[in-house]
Amino acid sequence: MLFLTATTGAVDLVNISILNAAIVAVLGYAVVFFGLILLMCVITALGKFFIAKDAKAKAAAPAAAAPAAAAAAAPAEKPTAPGSAGQLKLHDVEPKTAAMLMAIVADKMGKPINELRFISIKEVK
C-alpha cells in the first residue's frame, strides 16, 4: 500500500501502480474536501462573528438615537414614485445605469417595469 511503502521510501511514484494511483486519486479528492470544509467552518465562524457584531451595533443605535430624535423632528421620507414597488438600494451603480439595467431586465422578461420589484443593484467587480 502507498502509505506503508511511502514511509520506507520504496514506492515508485513515477511508474506508479494502478492501485497506488487509485489511492492517490481518492486521497487527493478527500484532501480537497477536507481543506475546503475546514475553510468553510472558519468562514462561517467569521461571518457569525460579524453578524453578531452588526446586530449589537444596530441594537445600540436606536437607543442612542432616541433622545436626539425627540429633540429634532425626523425629516419626512420622500414619497416613492407612482407605481413604484418600494425603495431600491444601489451599490456602486449610477442611477442612470440602474435605470438602464431595469429597463433591459423588464424587456428580457417581457413584463412591464412597474410590475417588477428591484431590491438592490450591485456592481460585480
Binding site: A25, V26, G28, Y29, G35, I37, I43, G47
Partner: peptide, 21 residues
C-alpha cells in the same frame, strides 16, 4: 463569504482532476 457552503461545490467540482489523473 455570504454563502460559505459554496466551498463544498468548489470541492465537489475537482472530481475531474482526480478521475482524469
Amino acid at each position: 463569504l455570504s454563502n460559505p457552503k459554496s466551498l463544498l461545490l468548489g470541492a465537489a467540482a475537482q472530481m475531474g482532476v482526480f478521475v482524469a489523473f
